[in-house]
């Protein structure tokens, strides 16, 4: 690493004002954004900036002078300069052609080429427009047709494909901003937000839900109605089901990309009657086996 005083071209005795002056003078000429075509300028600028980072800061300068830190201690973090973006297609709102507007009217080969390249840009595609569309969980599974109202009063009809996931982006080709010349419209990009559902949660292609069952249903089993995003179905609860018992409804999950459906998992939860029931109390107090069973046996310390 070069001596920062040499990089800035100042004497080790220079005042901080002189250091700043020297830096500004060099940096103005070397700043990569002011030298978009000069690759070497960036390295030189970094060296100068590094030197100034050290010497421009009174405390760091003192530590360097005392030999506590070396010149590399001032390495700057990597950063992207504006010039790295300015020649990309995204720079459209900023760049302008007035720098060669006068050349284009001439009647020679160069002017023709300039005109052609400008036409290529004049016929650019319109900008893509971004929207956000919230939909219900059920709609994300079954699919839906939604109408998106635009800020300008217009509307867009959006077809939600079945099985869509939160954050998925739908592209409506040609529904963006108009382009210039023959460039055509941009696209409308719609980010779909799936609103959470009270009953269902989704994991991959599978759907989970919790379902309350009564004590008789748990003990004796039975057929019960279970809601799914595509409508209610009947499910058989086996005898002796417990809280936490999970049943699988095959093919009642979200549609898979490669065909078929995921499954819906129904986790049972035994719920006692809301009102205390004397008959139940009488039964339980006389129920001998109920007293010998310790559900906490496994979790005992």
């Amino acid at each position: 690493m070069t001596n920062p005083y040499e990089v800035l071209g100042v004497a080790p005795t220079a005042s901080s004002a002189d250091v700043q002056k020297a830096y500004r003078k060099l940096a103005k000429k070397l700043h990569p954004d002011l030298n978009p075509g000069d690759k070497a300028a960036e390295d030189k600028f970094k060296e100068v900036a590094g030197a100034y980072d050290l010497l421009g800061d009174a405390e760091k300068r003192k530590r360097f002078d005392d030999g506590e830190i070396d010149a590399t201690g001032a390495e700057r973090p990597q950063h992207h300069f504006y010039r790295d973006f300015a020649t990309s297609d995204h720079a459209q709102p900023y760049t302008n052609n007035s720098g060669f507007a006068d050349f284009k009217d001439a009647d020679d080969a160069l002017a023709e080429l300039l005109r052609r390249s400008e036409r290529a840009r004049a016929n650019r595609r319109g900008q893509d427009l971004h929207y956000r569309l919230p939909i219900d969980f059920v709609e994300s599974i079954t699919g839906a047709n939604k109408r998106l109202t635009l800020p300008d009063g217009g509307s867009l009809d959006v077809t939600i494909p079945p099985g869509l996931v939160d954050g998925q982006i739908l592209r409506l080709r040609g529904r963006g901003e108009p382009g210039a010349g023959t460039g055509g419209h941009g696209d409308a990009l719609i980010e779909v937000e799936v609103l959470p559902d009270r009953r269902f949660t989704r994991e991959g292609d599978d759907i989970s839900m919790e379902l309350a069952i009564s004590l008789p249903e748990a003990v004796l089993g039975g057929r019960i109605r279970v809601p799914t995003p595509t409508g209610d179905v009947t499910m058989t609860v086996p005898k002796g089901s417990n809280t936490g018992t999970t049943m699988r409804l095959k093919g009642k999950g979200a549609p898979r990309r490669e065909g078929g459906h995921g499954d819906q998992f129904v986790k049972l939860k035994v719920v006692l009657p809301k009102q205390p029931d004397p008959e139940l109390e009488a039964f339980v107090s006389n129920w001998a086996n109920g007293k010998t069973f310790n559900p906490r046996e496994d979790s005992a310390p």
């Binding site: 830096y23 500004r24 940096a27 103005k28 700043h31 954004d33 002011l34 978009p36 075509g37 010039r83 300015a86 020649t87 720079a91 900023y94 760049t95 302008n96 052609n97 007035s98 720098g99 060669f100 300039l114 390249s117 400008e118 290529a120 840009r121």
Partner: peptide, 28 residues
């Protein structure tokens, strides 16, 4: 860092945008 005032920034950006316009045209 460079002590450019508001008018100066305006001029620099305007020239820089032209410069990049030229660079794009040249590239094309």
């Amino acid at each position: 860092n460079f002590g450019v005032n508001e008018e100066g920034v305006d001029i620099i950006l305007h020239l820089l945008d032209q410069l990049h316009g030229l660079r794009r045209a040249l590239d094309q």
